[in-house]
Amino acid sequence: MLRKIFSVFGRDIRTSMRDSMAIFIIVMPVVMAVAITLFTPGLNDTTVNLAMLRSDDPSHITYMEQFAKVEVFDNIGDIEKRVNKRDAVAAIVPLESGYEIILQGNEPDMVENYTVMLNSLYELGTTKEETTTTMMSFGHTVPPLKTMLVNMLISMTVMLAGMLIAVSIVGEKADNTINAVNVTPLSQIGFVIGKSMMGGLVAMGSIIVSLLITGYYDINWFMIVLVGLTSLILAFVVGFLQGLASDDVIEAAGNVKMILLPVAGSIIGYELLADKWQWTMYWSPFYWAYKANLLVLSKQADWPTVLLCTGMVLILSLAVYFLALPKIRKGLS
């Protein structure tokens, strides 16, 4: 049985590598990951960048260097030039009384808050040694925008696995080969597992590569894989259904794209709905998967929460699976 499943898997991989649509689907997440890396601020800047004047009080500069990366400039003109560069830099310039903070305007709020706070602490005379307050609230090491984008990319990659399966099914339908496989000892379930393995492995591979490209090395990988595999179930069901319902690749791709709507809806719901309205998204497995992944990516995940989220994904996906099963069985025979 296992050998047969692997044969189906191997054939599907081989065929996908010869199909331009499939290659596009496989490569797309990686390209997106590179794009996210290029267009969002660096992940490993764990502190805020500051620009300061050389004429400033040396103890001020030293103080700030404890908490931020400080660049020193000779005059206000150079400081303004620096602040206006693409990355996020805040400048602290002494005035006659107090300080002025100069921003380009497109920095994350956190940069502004952090700079203001740091400077207040200096003015208050608090030292790192004697403070009882921790700076953990500023412990976001990754710009939230980037985490959000990467998380969206994961959701998309999972759905692409479905599209890959749909493309493969459409190919089998065009060649009329499902009949040929149906008169071999390979069982229908073996056929389904083999194809799902192809979609699943490609998607998990893409997710892992994308996370490495975007720089999420020290996250809990077990959690990522667990959430990924669970949310793939739904992608498989969608892939088989759409593949069987479509007559050509374009139609299949279009049909699978339709499913991106609830995915996008769930993400928007999670990000924008107030806490008291979050329950309106509980029906969506995509919502739970997105939530779990966000916690893992921002390193705020604990097992109970992740297990709750995956449990919800699993239950909702299995419900869809069992609803769709008769249709899939019929389509494949």
């Binding site: 054939r11 065929t15 199909d19 190919g171 060649d175 080969t177």
Partner: peptide, 8 residues
């Protein structure tokens, strides 16, 4: 009707 994998 012949039915073989055209990509193989």
């Amino acid at each position: 009707q012949s039915n073989v994998y055209s990509k193989l």
